[in-house]
Every structure is written in structure tokens, then in C-alpha cells.
């Protein structure tokens, strides 16, 4: 039903090489406005490369990326200005800066300085913990709080599309659950999300549609609820018995 609309993000036949190694061998995907789309795959499948190629930190070998039908810039800072921001793998918060300085950095490209205060309040309502710690150095936050800060920082540029690279990495299961709940809430506030995850179950439970990436190629795509019960996916990414528990979780 959504297929006729112009996608918010359209990646067409994207290839990326690291020297002689082909990291992405022609990836195509679409993200429509309002969606949460996930890309799952194992280590080395090219998930992070995909994120870095979209945001402009890694050069493309060939292929096109469009945002709302317009070609996406190739330089990182121009991409951010076009409305995409990335929560990088490993969070990469600025440890020696305070929480509020980290958030201010997130708003760097914005010219509407007066509205930044409102958005600061907005991310504080999403993550009240950050407000409590606004004057604290970011390096003193716990892992989960740092992930919240990384997400809030990315939201400060008011992106149309939020990219997340392995937000669950290195976090306790209970914190992962919190973070994913927050992502759903962010999506309900009109932020489209593209997430890559090794934690396939969580990602599929969160998202509307999913792509499975294997050695630089999309091998499977579809609605997340279908992928959750797809025998290939359950065997390769969800582990034995995952299907039933996943269904149970979805129901509850």
C-alpha cells in the first residue's frame, strides 16, 4: 500500500569497497516515512558499512542514495543537514563534555537557535535521566545512560531519519528493553528509524519491515512479523525455539 509513495530513503545498488575487500556488493533498500526498518545480519555482513556509507563517513564505490527523491550528499556534514543523523556503534559520546554540551553538539548544524531550547526539553522528556545529569561529564554516565545520550544527541538535529548502529551493543538485557521501548516512542513522534542490529529478535519485534544482510548482499526482505517466523531467519539469527517465544512476546 505504501509502495507508490516516494520513499524517505532509497538506497539503490550500493557498493562499498575497503581496498580489495568488497563490503557491500549492491545493496538496495527503501525506508518510508513513519516506518521503523531494521537490517539484521551477523558480524561482518556489512551492517555498519551500510550506515557509514549513508551518513557519508565511508565513500561509495557505486550506487545511488536518495532522500525524498533528491540525491543524498556525499559529505558527512551535508548529509546531516539533509535530515539524517546517526547514533554510531559504541555510542561515541564526548566523554570530557557535559551531558548538555553533548546535546548542544547534536544541534550543531541548526540555524534556528531559538528552538534548540524546546528540543532540549523534548529529549529530556524522552530521557528524564539525562535531565538529572545534565551538568555531569558524559564519561561518568553508565553504559545505558550513554546510549540514551547518544540517541538524544542524534535527535537534537531534528532528523527526518534516525540511523542506529547496534544500539544494544554491550548493554544488559533489561536496559536494551528500555532503549527499544524509547525508540518506539520516538518513532511515534514522527521520526523515521533505520536500525541495524545483531540482536535480531529485538530489532524485528521493534520494526515494521526488515532486511537480512549477508556478506554484503540483501538475501531476504519483508514484514518483520513474517521474518520473525521465517524458518531461515529463525535458524540463522534467532536460534532454536525462538519463534515461539518471539510470538509470545509480541502478544504480551
Amino acid at each position: 500500500m505504501t509502495e507508490e509513495r516516494t520513499p524517505l530513503l532509497e538506497v539503490t545498488d550500493l557498493k562499498v569497497n575497503y581496498g580489495a575487500i568488497a563490503a557491500l556488493r549492491g545493496v538496495s533498500l527503501k525506508v518510508y516515512e513513519g516506518e521503523i526498518v531494521c537490517v539484521i545480519g551477523s558480524n561482518g555482513a556489512g551492517k555498519s558499512t551500510l550506515m557509514n556509507a549513508i551518513i557519508g563517513q565511508v565513500g561509495r564505490e557505486s550506487g545511488d542514495i536518495h532522500i525524498q527523491g533528491a540525491p543524498l550528499a556525499k559529505r558527512n556534514y551535508q548529509v546531516v543537514r539533509q535530515g539524517i543523523s546517526l547514533v554510531p556503534e559504541g555510542r561515541r559520546i564526548f566523554a570530557p563534555l557535559t551531558v548538555v554540551e553533548n546535546l548542544t553538539m547534536g544541534a550543531f548544524p541548526r540555524t534556528d537557535r531559538s528552538k534548540i531550547g524546546d528540543d532540549l526539553e523534548w529529549v529530556y522528556t524522552l530521557f528524564p535521566r539525562l535531565k538529572e545529569r545534565c551538568g555531569q561529564y558524559a564519561g561518568t554516565l553508565s553504559g545505558g545512560e550513554q546510549q540514551m545520550l547518544a540517541i538524544a544527541r542524534a535527535l537534537m538535529s531534528r532528523p527526518k531519519l534516525l540511523l542506529l548502529d547496534e544500539p544494544s551493543l554491550g548493554l544488559a538485557p533489561i536496559i536494551i528493553k528500555d532503549i527499544f521501548k524509547e525508540l518506539r516512542r520516538i518513532n511515534e513522534e514522527n521520526v523515521t528509524i533505520l536500525i541495524v542490529e545483531q540482536n535480531a529478535r529485538q530489532a524485528l519485534l521493534l520494526s515494521h519491515r526488515g532486511y537480512v544482510l549477508q556478506t554484503g548482499r540483501v538475501v531476504l526482505e519483508g514484514d518483520s512479523k513474517d521474518l520473525l517466523v521465517n524458518p531461515e531467519v529463525t535458524a540463522a539469527y534467532l536460534g532454536t525455539g525462538a519463534t515461539r517465544s518471539a510470538k509470545a512476546e509480541k502478544k504480551s
Binding site: 563517513q57 558527512n76 556534514y77 554510531p88 561515541r92 564526548f94 553538539m105 547534536g106
Partner: peptide
């Protein structure tokens, strides 16, 4: 602290 991540924030 981190030049690359500063780039992610939209800094030229």
C-alpha cells in the same frame, strides 16, 4: 576528543 564523531554531528 573524537574528530570523526564531531563530523557525525554535522560539523564540517
Amino acid at each position: 576528543y573524537d574528530l570523526r564523531t564531531a563530523g557525525l554531528m554535522g560539523v564540517n
